[in-house]
Design a protein around this nucleic acid. Structure first.
Lengths: 216, 216
DNA sequence: GTCTATATGAAGATAGAC
DNA sequence: GTCTATCTTCATATAGAC
């Protein structure tokens, strides 16, 4: 390894980059924006958090808006990745839905998930494109995953959706999983939910959905 | 009427008050805060919107925070009032739930309802008490109303909640009604939902709930 | 209470040296 | 690219006259 390092410094280190200031700035901006939102966050706070100077921030991002956009997009991508990494074990509908719901709820109810929701929703009138990105990266991806598994369950005869379409049913399920605990956490910002509490919410959502549309 | 108006000016006009500047300021603050949130709103905007001077604002409210709190509390009270004014006609569970859900959804999905949600959620870390107030004034009141009607339905044998408590079931129902359309509207701030669209969402929620717990 | 005018501080963004 | 120092604008809040 490292026999030919003549032009090494011209390449970006692909991972665990030692000190490319852009990453440092982005990480600091993430922390500051997630904690304070767009308007209350200041470039001074970001600069201090990153331990760089003001002009280093502006060397990599033309202004505060673009830095905010970069942060939100990176955060959305990160959550999408986590959703796609869910590991399913073969099993009945109820287990599959529980696995999916638990993974989704854990993301949504994490500190980062709640903070991202706050800032995206708050700034949606000013940054409508970001709101769309968020929707497509999170709820939409989760619903697609659910829809695939619902299709399997319908094929196996475990499910009867009635007049409801698969996609509509999938959206309803993930919204059923998300709504109550998310509202609870958003309006009670001091208390973080335990894993046991999350499991309870998940179980309640799965139960309702299976009672409504399960067969057997 | 009005035979004795000697001390009339010492009393507040109960309605349609001609020009008490405090009301003017509060209304202007409401418009500005709901449109821009807390941090991005400025006292200049409020002052201009109210067509009064800076010191008139500060004569009635000591600072921006307290004005914000007054706005949010008034808005919460207004929504609570609307919820308590829902008129029910005697009927089966499905109609009752539909009436309630439609009224709640109409409030939540109104421009004012969405804007209030945005700012309360965004500022919950900074104003946790306001977030609690919001929760108690809106979702909590709606859930209580639902719980009462669920109790009736259980007594009539129209409903079997299984192991789920009445309050938990009521919360789940209103969250089922709220979650999907609210997320949709929050992340697509340009498109306002039609009454027909709202009815469709309401019907989907009621159908799922009745399929899950209805008897008959 | 209400106004005009202003104090005071902090924000976003840039200049210019290295 | 990175820093220090600074420009400009605009925010919250107050002073003092009426």
């Amino acid at each position: 390894m490292q026999t030919d390092n003549a032009n090494a410094e011209t390449r970006q280190a692909p991972d665990e980059s030692p000190n490319p200031k852009e990453q440092v700035v982005l990480r600091a901006a993430r922390a500051v924006f997630l904690a304070h939102g767009f308007s209350a966050a200041t470039t001074d706070m970001i600069q201090r958090e990153a331990k760089v100077s003001k002009s280093t921030v502006y060397a990599h991002y033309p202004n505060k808006e673009d830095l905010f956009i970069a942060v939100v997009e990176a955060e959305c991508a990160s959550h999408t990745r986590k959703l796609r990494d869910i590991e399913f074990r073969p099993g009945m509908l109820r287990e599959t839905l529980t696995t999916l719901a638990r993974a989704y709820a854990t993301i949504v109810l994490s500190q980062a998930g709640l903070a991202l929701f706050r800032i995206v929703i708050a700034e949606a009138p000013r940054f409508p494109a970001l709101a769309r990105t968020f929707y497509l990266a999170g709820p939409s991806v989760a619903a697609e995953l659910v829809a695939e598994h619902l299709a399997d369950a319908v094929a196996r005869g475990e499910l009867d959706l009635g007049e409801l379409g698969r996609d509509a049913a999938a959206r309803q399920f993930i919204n059923l999983v998300r709504s109550e605990p998310q509202l609870e956490c958003l309006t009670h910002p001091d208390a973080a939910p335990s894993a046991a509490q999350i499991d309870q919410w998940v179980a309640a959502a799965v139960t309702t959905f299976v009672r409504a549309y399960g067969r057997g």
